[in-house]
């Protein structure tokens, strides 16, 4: 087979696979219970928030536990904006993203100078501060009582009121963001990010603005996290501080790690695990947190590259007929 024919068949297979995935995706809610669809909706919301965390960690080496804060900002912006100020939903969503982005830019400049454990701790501190503020700024957030009556999203007279309907809103959003992050990774900016991860000194010589790129990716991640938070608020229509605590921050980081930080589509698998596993395990009684922790440990030990890394390896093995691709000879 010539290289051209091979790449044409590869494209054909990818195309057919995409169509199959699309059909399964469209058909899925018709065959599932309401609670199963609910899990898939949360998987979609968490995929979006987790994407930001995953890209930051995998491409910039930035461990961020702050995502629950930005997720909360998105949720409260849309809750306050729609219920108190009476603003249109799209305006509130964009507002939440902007507020998150501005805050991320302001805190990102000092915090992202840190690295390793210090950086992780600093972002953890941000998540804690955010949680405390959500609790204290009662006139916006309603404190422990929360905010209820958040309106459902409607488009052209169609209201995304049920899990079944919301499924068809959240997943196209998630897919669009997966695509956007993939485009970013393949662009010259994505190459610059990977370059500064490999050899920061050489990247600086190449003129890559390392510090400012890190801040930009952090800001993007915060805006995406806020978007996920807004979707969450409109989906559940009642929010309180409990949804934006440290466990949520850890959950988002888990999604990134389990999904494989170098893999963008892997985030879906990570989000599915983090959403579905506790839910199904809880049916086994009180030991469910322990079982979840056990499942996590097993997943991390056996899949060091996360689900995404595992799939990529499998794909590479299949396409090379089991042989490892080798470097050219003569060197």
């Amino acid at each position: 087979m010539t290289a051209l024919a091979r790449s044409a068949t590869a494209h054909l297979w990818t195309g057919m696979l995409m169509v199959a995935v699309l059909l399964v995706w469209v058909a899925l809610p018709w065959f599932l219970s309401r609670s199963a669809i609910d899990i898939l909706v949360f998987t979609g919301i968490y995929t979006i928030a987790g994407l930001g965390v995953s890209f930051l960690l995998g491409q910039c080496g930035i461990v961020s536990l702050a995502q629950s804060g930005f997720y909360g900002i998105g949720a409260y912006a849309t809750a306050y904006g729609t219920t108190v100020l009476g603003l249109p939903i799209p305006v509130c969503i964009v507002l939440g993203m902007l507020v998150s982005a501005v805050i991320a830019a302001a805190v990102g400049v000092p915090v992202l100078r840190l690295s390793g454990h210090f950086l992780a701790l600093a972002t953890l501190a941000l998540a804690i501060i955010a949680h405390v503020l959500f609790l204290e700024l009662e006139w916006i957030t309603g404190g422990t009582l929360g905010i209820g009556g958040i309106p459902r999203i409607s488009l052209f007279g169609f209201t995304f009121a049920t899990p079944f309907r919301f499924y068809y809103l959240v997943w196209p959003s998630a897919f669009a963001l997966l695509l956007a992050y993939s485009l970013l990774l393949r662009s010259r900016t994505g190459i610059a990010l990977r370059a500064m991860r490999d050899a920061p000194a050489a990247a600086a010589v190449a003129g890559i603005p390392i510090a400012s790129l890190k801040v930009r990716i952090f800001v993007l991640s915060a805006a995406v996290g806020a978007f996920a938070g807004s979707l969450f608020a409109h989906y559940v229509s009642f929010i309180s501080v409990d949804s934006f605590a440290i466990d949520r921050a850890i959950g988002f980081l888990l999604i990134a790690v389990l999904g494989g930080v170098r893999s963008i589509p892997g985030t879906i698998a990570g989000a599915l695990f983090v959403t579905a596993a506790p839910n199904y395990l809880s049916r086994l009684g009180d030991i469910h947190p322990l079982l979840f922790a056990l499942a996590l440990i097993v997943a991390v030990i056996f899949l060091p590259g996360g689900f995404g890394g595992f799939m990529a390896n499998l794909g590479a093995k299949l396409s090379s007929g089991g042989r490892r691709p080798s470097a050219p000879a003569g060197g």
């Binding site: 695509l179 970013l184 010259r188 994505g190 370059a195 930009r216 990716i217």
Partner: peptide, 21 residues
């Protein structure tokens, strides 16, 4: 890709442009 990274200073587009494709 190493050489594409080497060309970085000739480019203008940033994170947002790439994200929006």
């Amino acid at each position: 890709e190493n050489l594409v990274a080497g060309c970085h200073r000739h480019g203008r587009t940033g994170v947002l442009e790439a994200f929006l494709g």
